[in-house]
Design a protein around this nucleic acid. Sequence first.
DNA 1: TATTCGTGGAG
DNA 2: TCTCCAAGAAT
Length: 362
Amino acid sequence: MARSAAQSAPSESIADALLAWYDRHHRELPWRVTPDRQQAGERADPYRVWLSEIMLQQTTVQAVGPFYAKFLALWPTVADLAAADEEDVLKAWAGLGYYSRARNLKRAAEAVVHDHGGAFPPDAAGLRSLPGIGDYTAGAVAAIAFNRAEPVVDGNVERVFTRLFAIETPLPAAKPEIRRLVATEVPDDRPGDFAQATMDLGATICTPRRPSCILCPLRDRCMALRDGDPERFPLKAAKKEKPVRRAAAFVAVDPAGAILLRKRPGTGLLAGMSEVPTSEFTARLDGDTSVDAAPFPAAWTLAGTIKHVFTHFELRLDVYRAELSERPATNIGWWSTRDDISGEALPTVMKKALACAIPDIF
DNA sequence: TATTCGTGGAG
DNA sequence: TCTCCAAGAAT
């Protein structure tokens, strides 16, 4: 196998090398129209591209899979999603995390239908104005769904380019420099495939640990590899430690086995999601862990303590349970039956709390 | 610029 | 058990 061009100055562009690799080694993903299918005339559906990109924000392909399938089955078009109840969208999103994405998803769908005639804006600037779409997602949808030559920079691309150019500036300060470099390499021909190729390379070859440089189509021009330690990139600012927060959760069970739930506030942690009554456990405040924080007097017994790790703090939640002989006079929420409980908009931490109090509930 | 937003898998 | 971190956005 002959080396192409000189090792120090390959004549083939980065884009050409990446696209040739992508044609052979791309991943098969449910929302992706692969090069062969594009060749046959198939085009990416902006709704599906957008939906997948929102779900994939800070979320693994594996985790997104079943949620993407469920959303597409429930709401096949952006008009269907715009017409949906927000509560149903939150229920379908429950477990995927970063719940503001779900509410912005609904708002963006409404904007597309009511402000853009039912079609997604076909350029990055227009897309960027929709709720939940930032620089990355605007570029990704513009490039993949509308063939626009936009730079698309996610965590994979940051890793690939900081290694390729041995960028010593730590993240996030290096972002503008990375974006400039990527913009220089974006081809007018296949900008969507170029973006997906760079991300696939980062996900399968140029991995955070133990990258498979021997298989990399860019190995001859990677400055980090030339220097001998590609794994050193990207440099990152030191992260701060997670504080521990404590709170108490109260699982009230009525004679029929129904559970008292309530809806969380519309802003902040787990905004708009459902929960069992719980003392405060925001990032700023340690909650009351005693039975004094109960929503009403009852024979509360401590069922156990669960640990749950959020992005910026760890929560230790004391879970209390009470078997009630009759429903108390409270209007803080609603009573969810054993049949309904699985379909509620319960974040994972609340499902853990319920499972702690009632091991066979799910 | 720094912080606030979840969750689960890999090593 | 612990650390990292995954197709980031909003404030």
